[in-house]
Design a protein around this nucleic acid. Structure first.
Length: 1093
RNA sequence: GGGCGGUUAGCUCAGCUGGUUAGAGCACACGCCUGAUAAGCGUGAGGUCCCGGGUUCGAGUCCCGGAUCGCCCA
């Protein structure tokens, strides 16, 4: 006999990693990703932007997280009929690369690099950038992320740089680019700008001076507000001798550079009489502290508000400095509007009185906040040191800044302005390579005037959907509200060179917007020029008789990545916003892909990529750059600690893929917690994810294939849904509901919610549908019923496979190939080329869903009751009483009474309706309804309801009447909807109740039931033996036996059933032969012999 | 120092606009089932919902204060 070809590939044990490798090979060979690009897209383009990772590090678990979320929605949208361009990208410039190369080359002070060294340095950077590109390519493919890496954009490519220049030029033309000072951390001896990361580890606990200095106030400039307030308190200004404002600082070396004294406008300031120095003004909150510190009796004579003090002029401790530096012509110089140029009291919210005097000394050259304040007040800068940290003024001239403190304190003591000099222990950053303290120093820097667009940035943010939502007005919104100008220049080598050329005398500046423009200026073709340093630095040109040279800085890498919507297509526009000649196609591509429908990165990108994208598109196009954004939380280890190499708690992705499969990892990342939350990650959790969803799905699948291969159902021509049994129609309805819900969730970018729906469905599919219908698949002589069962289960599986495809692309593909392609050769070649299922609302039979819901609920309660009663399921029981809270559900229980009886192994199901004699109830107020209506009287109503006869209440409500109550001598009428009844367990039954559902088993076992129960024990005994013999499920046997006691009786009555269940062709009471199995207990004894037929 | 978020069972997490006995999965214990079988299912135990105060008939949920962890920014 020729064996018929199997309908489906047999399903072996689960080995997801091997399965995934096979799927990868299939995708590769059949070019499925490329084909998905060609899939018809009636819905148009869904625009996705790949936020470029850096390829110099190794891919880690958090990259799996981001890439999973980047992958799922494009896959979903593709199935839905959108086209999704999935262009990859690499971020290649910037500090991490430079630092790595610096280490390698042993270069420390970049100031000293000559042309050759720069060439060597940038060359090394270029090579280092893709140090791990092979790992990235492999990893990306292996995890099932579809992205076009062959045509990825690369931020260091000339074409990319040219587009970035072009963007800068357009901003330049609109006057958005300016040069201004910026306070940066310097390592002073080498005058090298450091990044925050470089100083983050350099903090040390040190002792620094803590000095309180008197700034004598100029009486003639006393603000009107001060005069008035003093008068109101009965204090005469004239009586205040030696009046000074008391300023606190821990950096005496910055005092020569002082330009303002800042007070908090909302804080209280005290006018204090000091026996030693006369009158002082400082924060009221600090009086007690100063009293103890300086050990003298301070008397508060008046109170002032910080804002009263604005513009009050004072004499600084080193008044000669400003003239010396040529910043003003004379001390006390005024502006045209009469305001002082320098040395006055300013208002600043950041001033606090927690330390010091509540009056801050402002030296804008040495502090970012100070510099910002100086901009607000329009004061000039006083450079007390140069950028190597050497003092340029006072008698301490030439000293290293920290070494100048002592001498300056001495001078101030001599001048009689030092009120108190002490010490403070605090943390201060040091540069760990030179050992020098960090110098914060204002350097000229290039800015984009984003602060002019604060409102537009904020308004455009309103148009973006943020997931999670709180980022929108929280982290991101606040950041936009407080927006400061974007400092875009860096004193580095490996980056997009700033395309600014400046004339020798500094009077003229040109921004270059394309290579062609530069060629024209230089008078030669520069098409082949590497736009990086040092080569671009060598391009000079003469215009208007002046020689122009490029500024030395390179561009902030965040601008690079924020430019990707334009630069990935090499967009080049002229001043009118039209494409430069020959770039029309680039323009078309850009237009089709702007703005993005969806982007996704981790939460640290709010100030990074999310911001740079948003800022550039707002400034140039006044619109948001992306419509939907998922902001992922960070991955931490099992204990909630950050994963880091030094801690050794890093979970590598590839071993996880090899052990559990990429799908298991993906599923966990999608469904394990909210995407925006921090996630704890561990191997154990991946294992759980694999077992929970994938394992259950696999079980159902293998069950289906096992029997379908035996029965060969016709799946091409399936029975109409209306002709199928109710159980099948239920699953069909449930399946439509699933499609609806998963689609809605994914449309809302809720991968987790969608995943939970899938998980729930698969659970019901396995533990209800398959469990209840097993026999229809293996011992079904009714072909119509059998075909219906196969069709229904097949459809459910195929639907799940399609819905799961964006989540777990490998398993979905494998099942699709076997379940669909084997029976429908004309079906799409890959599940990812198939169309997303549509829900058919006509098939959502709400009644059926409600009814089955009640059945499942009641069966659950009955199982619980049986477990408590201690009577095994094998033992039939005479009766179960069930009830449910609504009429619709009660109808369902009646309707499916046979299912319930079978599932619970009981002889009869009795459905008890409202008000039936066997039932008693708990009478409860419907709180959400009653609470709103009666408020404080709720407790009294609750008590009154408990007093009532529940049977009476049940009958009243059943008849639709309202309930009348007497409460605190008042008559209240409760409508039926305002009172809830919960069935209570009847006496004498093993019962469970919950929220109005109840199941009560009658535990009464008579002789007949006992014999039946024993027969099931015997069946089990034989089945066990069959398994031990290694028989196939369809093998026939011959049975011989001896028996005594009740087992003998049971076999007489139920022998026929035993034969049927165990596929025994004969059952003879004789000496057992063959494989022997036996049993003996208080009910009797039995011994079977099994022989294969 | 500021901003944002978290803190619920041993673990990982749900808990919508306040509402009755705070849930799920895993792990654990016990049991069930046996033609999905080196699978499957159920039951149970396990909680000061971080702490303190407030609003309310009623707070895990809202408000205020604090602790703590994390991220970002200074």
């Amino acid at each position: 006999m020729v064996e018929e070809k199997k309908l489906f590939e047999e399903v072996s044990e689960t080995n997801f990693p091997r399965l995934e490798e096979a799927v990868l090979a299939f995708w590769r060979e059949q070019q499925i990703f490329a084909k998905s690009d060609q899939k018809p897209a009636p819905k148009g383009e869904f625009v996705f932007y790949e936020g470029p990772p850096t390829a110099n590090g190794k891919p880690a678990m958090h990259h799996v997280l981001a890439r999973s979320f980047k992958d799922i929605f494009p896959r979903y949208k593709t199935m839905q009929g959108y086209h999704v361009t999935r262009k990859g990208g690499w971020d290649t410039h910037g500090l991490p690369v430079e630092i790595a190369v610096e280490k390698k080359l042993g270069v420390l002070g970049r100031k000293t690099l000559n042309r050759e060294q720069i060439a060597e340095f940038t060359q090394q950077c270029r090579e280092w950038v893709f140090a791990n590109i092979e790992d990235w390519n492999y990893f990306t493919e292996r995890m099932g992320m579809w992205v076009d890496l062959e045509n990825a954009y690369v931020t260091y490519h000339n074409s990319y740089i040219e587009s970035v220049w072009n963007l800068l030029k357009r901003m330049w033309d609109k006057g958005m680019v300016v040069q201004n000072y910026k306070v940066v951390p310097l390592s002073p001896r080498i005058s090298s700008t450091l990044s925050q990361n470089e100083i983050a580890d350099g903090y040390r606990e040190v002792d620094d001076p803590s000095v309180y200095v008197r700034f004598p106030l100029k009486r003639e400039t006393t603000p009107e507000a001060v005069r008035e307030r003093l008068m109101a308190q009965g204090v005469r200004l004239e009586d205040l001798d030696n009046l000074a404002i008391l300023v606190w600082t821990t950096t005496p070396w910055t005092l020569p550079s002082n330009t303002m004294a800042a007070v908090n406008p909302e804080m209280d300031y005290a006018v204090v009489r000091s026996p030693s120095v006369g009158h002082l003004i400082f924060a009221a909150e600090a009086v007690e502290r100063l009293r103890e510190l300086h050990k003298e009796e301070l008397e508060v004579v008046a109170h002032l508000k910080g804002k009263d003090l604005e513009w009050w002029e004072y004499t600084p401790p080193f008044p000669e400095v400003c003239v010396e530096l040529g910043v003003v012509k004379e001390q006390g110089e005024k502006r045209p509007d009469g305001r002082p140029v320098l040395h006055f009291v300013a208002l600043a919210d950041f001033v606090s009185a927690e330390d010091g005097s509540g009056v801050a000394h402002e030296a804008p050259v040495y502090g970012a906040e100070d510099l910002e304040l100086s901009r607000q007040y329009g004061t000039p800068l006083l450079f007390g040191t140069n950028e190597y940290g050497l003092m340029q003024v006072t008698d301490e001239r030439g000293k290293f800044f920290k070494d100048a403190d002592k001498g300056l304190i001495r001078i101030m003591k001599e001048r009689g302005v030092m009120y108190h000099a002490g010490q403070i222990r605090h943390r201060y950053p040091f540069h760990d390579r030179t050992g020098d303290p960090i110098l914060y120093f204002a350097k000229p820097s290039w800015y984009i005037k984003t602060s002019n667009f604060r409102q537009a940035l904020y308004d455009n943010n309103e148009k973006i959907n943020w997931f999670p939502e709180h980022i929108k007005h929280g982290r991101f919104g606040n950041w936009l509200k407080d927006n400061v100008d974007w400092a875009i220049s860096r004193e580095r080598y490996w980056g997009t060179p700033l395309p600014f050329w400046v004339s020798e005398d500094g009077s003229e500046k040109i921004c270059v917007g394309s290579v062609r423009e530069l060629s024209e200026l230089a008078g030669r073709d520069l098409s082949d020029l590497d736009l990086h340093r040092p080569y671009v630095d060598e391009i000079t040109f003469v215009k208007n008789g002046k020689t122009f040279r490029r500024v030395p800085e390179v561009l902030d890498v965040w601008f690079d990545s924020g430019a990707m919507p334009y630069a990935q297509w090499h967009l080049l526009l002229d001043g009118q916003g039209q494409p430069l000649p020959g770039t029309e196609e680039n323009y078309r591509l850009w237009q089709r892909h702007f703005p993005a429908d969806y982007i996704c990165e981790a939460i640290d990108q709010t100030r990074g990529w999310f911001y740079s994208l948003h800022a550039i598109s707002t400034l140039l196009y006044d619109q948001p750059c992306f419509k939907n954004v998922i902001c992922l939380g960070h991955l931490v280890d099992e204990k909630g600690h950050k994963m880091s190499k030094s801690k050794g708690n890093v979970v590598e992705p590839l071993p996880m893929f090899d052990k559990y499969g990429a799908d298991a990892v993906r599923w966990y990342l999608f469904t394990g917690s909210e995407p925006g939350e921090q996630k704890r990650f561990s191997e154990r959790l991946v294992q759980e994810a694999q077992r929970g969803f994938l394992g259950t799905l696999w079980n159902v699948y293998s069950f289906f294939v096992l029997y379908a291969n035996l029965d060969r159902p016709n799946l091409q021509n399936r029975p109409a849904v209306v002709d199928r049994p109710e159980m099948d129609r239920w699953l069909v309805a449930r399946q439509q509901q699933l499609v609806e819900r998963v689609t809605a969730r994914l449309d809302a970018y809720d991968a987790r919610g969608a995943g939970k729906e899938l998980e729930q469905f698969v659970e019901e599919l396995s533990n209800w549908y398959v469990r209840r219908n097993r026999r229809r698949f293996w011992k079904n002589d009714d072909p119509t019923d059998r075909e219906s069962a196969y069709a229904t289960l097949w459809e459910a599986l195929v639907t799940v496979v399609q819905l799961a495809a964006p989540f777990t692309p490998f398993v979905a593909e494998a099942l699709w190939q076997n379940l669909v392609r084997k029976v429908q050769p004309e079906a799409p070649e890959s599940v990812h080329l198939s169309d997303w299922p549509n829900a058919d609302p006509a098939l959502v039979d709400e009644t059926l869903l409600t009814q089955m819901g009640a059945v499942v609920k009641v069966v659950g309660l009955a199982r619980s009751a049986r477990a408590i009663s201690g009577v095994k399921t094998r033992m039939p029981l005479p009766r179960v009483l069930v009830t449910a809270p609504t009429e619709a559900e009660l109808a369902g229980l009646r309707h499916f009474a046979d299912e319930i009886a079978d599932e619970l192994n009981v002889k009869a199901v009795e459905v008890l309706g409202l008000g039936e004699a066997l039932l008693s109830y708990r009478v409860l107020p419907n709180l959400p309804v009653l609470g709103k209506k009666y408020g404080k009287r709720v407790p009294a109503i609750r008590d009154a309801l408990a007093e009532l006869d529940s049977q009476m209440v049940a009958r009243t409500l059943k008849s639709g009447h309202s309930l009348s109550l007497e409460i605190e001598a008042e008559r209240l009428v409760l409508e039926p909807g305002e009172v809830l009844l919960e069935a209570l367990s009847p006496e004498g039954y093993a019962a469970q109740e919950q929220e109005g559902y109840m199941a009560a088993l009658e535990v009464r076992i008579d002789e007949q039931l006992l014999l039946e129960g024993l027969s099931r024990d015997l069946i089990r005994l034989v089945q066990q033996a069959r398994k031990e013999m290694g028989l196939n499920v369809s093998d026939r046997i011959h049975l011989t036996y001896t028996a005594e006691g009740r087992y003998a009786e049971s076999l007489v009555q139920f022998g026929q059933r035993l034969q049927e269940e165990t596929l025994a062709l004969s059952l003879e009471q004789t000496k057992p032969v063959g494989y022997i199995t036996e049993l003996s207990d208080e009910e009797g004894a039995v011994k079977f012999g099994l022989r294969k037929a």
